[in-house]
Design a binder for these strands. Sequence first.
DNA 1: TTGTACGCGTTATCAA
DNA 2: TTGATAACGCGTACAA
Lengths: 344, 344
Amino acid sequence: MQQVADRANVSISTVSFVVNDTKPVSPETRARILQAIDELGYRRNAAARTLASRHSHVIALMYPLSEHHLSEFVTAAAAASARLGYRLILWPTHGDDAASEVTSLVKSGIADGALLMEVKLEDERVAMLRDADAPFVLMGRTRDTTGIDFVDVDFETTTTQAVGQLARLGHQDLALVVEDNTDTPLAGYAPAARTEQSFVAETAARGLGAYVARLPRGPAAGSAFADLLVQHAPDTTAVISLHNDANFGLVNTLRRRGVQVPRDLSIITISAPERLGALCDPPITTYPQPAEELGRRSAEALIARLQGSEEEPIQLLIPCEHPSSTSSVATAARDRAPLTGADL
Amino acid sequence: MQQVADRANVSISTVSFVVNDTKPVSPETRARILQAIDELGYRRNAAARTLASRHSHVIALMYPLSEHHLSEFVTAAAAASARLGYRLILWPTHGDDAASEVTSLVKSGIADGALLMEVKLEDERVAMLRDADAPFVLMGRTRDTTGIDFVDVDFETTTTQAVGQLARLGHQDLALVVEDNTDTPLAGYAPAARTEQSFVAETAARGLGAYVARLPRGPAAGSAFADLLVQHAPDTTAVISLHNDANFGLVNTLRRRGVQVPRDLSIITISAPERLGALCDPPITTYPQPAEELGRRSAEALIARLQGSEEEPIQLLIPCEHPSSTSSVATAARDRAPLTGADL
DNA sequence: TTGTACGCGTTATCAA
DNA sequence: TTGATAACGCGTACAA
């Protein structure tokens, strides 16, 4: 910085004013400084800037160590941050020491704020960050969201829309399959709970039959689900799935049993990566998860908060987009026989 | 830090010695300091440390902005870094301004070094980082790797093994499908090139028929590939795929045409996420990509380099593990009819 | 509009 | 084994 100042015949502070655009500088001086910066290839030192300004221009993405698929919203959040002059740092946390992770994140000054992934209905990180006065935005929602910034998928609206779409096609008996995360590190993870609740409410309001299955992760859940339908809800004509892995096992099992999708059974999957649904045979009608928007918006929300440009809580609910195809959805078959477990 | 020193009745330097373990400190003093740290909840300020020590303890993960699926090796790299006292910062780069990104990365002092993803055979970032004297490790390989640290999948060995496995089962005519990245931002991306080369070499050495298809991304490539086989290599009895999306389209198309996998056609996919292969019907035999190991090892390599504990270039080639199932592989059918394009 | 000088919270050098 | 103190590179209050 001193070299730049020397070369431009100004003081070091004038360089700072230009670099940060913090005070008016005459056009000529500015030009000389910019030229010197360019010629010397000067970049301001991030640590010194952080130390002096008390802002790191870094935001942390906190997620459980066990989560292996960060997917698109991470890259979207990183891209949005970069566009706004921030960097995204990965902050994996063990389930049990989230406490100390939060503290060190805040007190070390590494990051100005945090984005929280995999939010549970009751999430201890929220109270900790709040106590520490650390700005944060949830990618998801806790049960009580009073005064908390969050950006989340609108599972309620999406579920209601999916039920509505099926009801209009004459389906009377619906089933829902969600991931069961009891006993996993994600116990209390909210999407399944919210979706189930909306599903139950909306089917009840419409007087439709409703069967709900909570199944563990993995494609085997799909076959298990098919069996459960045979056993407990053989009259089901349409399925809504929040269980990505199960979709494959389900369509494959159905095919083997001669159940035609969508003629005999309609399937809709919600908040899933669109490309995943397209890989099934037949392709599964998908309310695609707004991953890019979720990542981008949450980063933008946090940065807005950091820059103090927001007063009110930022609470964004993003419904999934509407399906781009109806490949696995059809009118309810009037007189379809109950589902059976026999392979062809 | 001053408060800690006061409370422990020592000087601020002694606190530093304890915190960084840089100089011997008597057990009693150390204990007093640690207690004071604990009681005050002190954490050292990252920016100040970086400024004074000239090390940020941050490493950057550079990847093209277009890459949407960071997947498991990102989380593995982040986890390994955290374990070693480093943090991983995401560093998306536009294809065209990689130059300035590299420069700012190095000169800003934000990161001590970089991990490079999506390495091309000729990658401009390498020369730039080298010129800037910035430590880096490639997750992948350039064509010329003299003196460069890298951790990469051993596509050559894996391809050779896959060809060998099929040859031993009596297959005479093999086909390979890879992603065609000509005209995409990933043009020059190495895995496809290396795999193709090894495939051609190994089949030639064994006197086997070899057909190669380079196809664009997306599941539609699978059906296209099936058509290409019918047209150009109808006697193919086994397929090797480096094209994840195509696998689904391929098995689904084959099923519709009455081609049974693996009775009529064997399929092996290499360097793919294992869970993806399991979603096909039938499940595709997979040489799973060593994603976790790749991420972990590359972070470890970079940190070793940063800590000066390595002299020689770190060059790690990791073959894919062996398939855990042979669900889509069988003995070559002696007298199978040539493939046709007619649906059942 | 520009310059001076102090402080940010550490690490590292040197002396005790 | 410990302590005093000078950097580290920048932002900013205040002065000019």
